[in-house]
Amino acid sequence: MVISLQKGQKIDLTKGNPGLTKIIVGLGWDTNKYSGGSDFDLDASAFLLDKNGRAGGIEDFIYYNNLVGGNGSVKHTGDNLTGAGEGDDEQIKVDLGLVPAHVDKVAITVTIHEAIARGQNFGQVSNAFVRVVNEANEQEVMRYDLGEDFSVETALVVCELYRYQGEWKFNAVGNGFSGGLAALCSNFGLQVG
């Protein structure tokens, strides 16, 4: 049975799913009729964060130009430049058992590439979702549909995977940022050029 989450909801990931160690975090979206004529290139990323919510360095930022991080525990499967088609547009694979001990949280984010230049924001995106899939049997474990609560934001923290008393939990965050990738990186303690 797939669990459907609401914004702000936190749920156990591993305690209720014994043996769940390798997951796929799938993200998908569509653009609505106000697209403005340019393709939307949304980019999923993962930030590996310490107990203070900060990334240790650029190596803790997994995205289309740095596909693997956390000693191989987090892998981005590649950039989808248009978001066309059904199902997941981008995926991030996480081996929970291999995530380094200093990483307390894996924040999953989505940004709009060249949002300012293209005049785009998340108000023009619809049907956005994140889902967690058990990689071993390809069964969907949980899903969070983001709704359409965003207007001017160009970056979103979609969800977090975090450790709690030796288990992994899932937090449906759904927080937006203006300022795109730079604002997101700054929020997690990274400076980008």
Rank of each mutant, 00 (worst) to 15 (best):
L42N: 13
L184H: 05
L96P: 01
E160T: 08
N134Y: 04
G8D: 12
G78K: 15
G179W: 05
V157L: 11
Y64S: 06
Q165N: 13
Q6E: 14
V68K: 15
S73F: 09
L161N: 03
Q6P: 01
A44W: 05
S126L: 02
L161G: 00
E140Q: 14
G180F: 05
R143G: 00
V132A: 01
R118W: 01
L156S: 03
G176W: 11
Q191G: 06
D12H: 10
V125W: 01
G179R: 10
E148H: 14
L146A: 05
G37V: 06
L190A: 09
A128M: 15
D79L: 08
V152L: 14
S126P: 00
A115H: 14
L81D: 13
V25H: 04
L190H: 12
N137G: 06
V106F: 09
G180L: 05
A55S: 14
V152P: 05
S151Q: 15
V157R: 12
N121Y: 06
E114H: 14
I112F: 08
S38F: 14
G36K: 13
V94Q: 06
D145C: 03
E167V: 04
G56P: 00
W168R: 02
H102N: 14
E160H: 12
S4G: 07
N171H: 14
G180M: 05
G87W: 05
K93S: 10
S45G: 11
I23A: 03
A44Y: 05
G180Q: 07
E153M: 02
N80G: 07
G26T: 01
W29N: 10
V2I: 14
V110R: 06
P18A: 04
A182P: 06
L184Q: 06
S4W: 09
L184W: 02
A172V: 07
K33M: 00
M142E: 00
Q165F: 05
F188T: 09
S35C: 09
A84W: 13
N187V: 07
A115D: 08
G78A: 10
L161V: 04
K33A: 07
E148T: 13
Q165H: 12
G97W: 10
D41R: 15
K22T: 10
R54L: 11
A101W: 10
G189T: 08
G36P: 02
N17R: 15
K93F: 05
E140G: 02
F40K: 13
D89Y: 08
N65K: 15
Q91P: 01
V103N: 03
G166A: 03
R131I: 00
G123E: 09
H113P: 04
Q120M: 07
D60K: 08
V110P: 00
G53T: 10
L161Q: 04
W29T: 10
N187Q: 15
Y64D: 06
I3S: 02
G57P: 03
V173N: 06
A155S: 13
G123A: 08
E140N: 10
Y162T: 05
V2H: 11
N71W: 09
G179I: 04
D95L: 07
E114P: 02
Q120A: 08
A117F: 07
K93C: 09
F40C: 11
E167G: 04
D79H: 11
E86K: 15
Q91W: 02
E135H: 12
G189S: 09
C159I: 03
E86T: 15
N127M: 00
Y164G: 02
G78P: 07
A44H: 08
N127A: 08
C185I: 02
F122H: 12
H113N: 15
Y64R: 07
V110F: 02
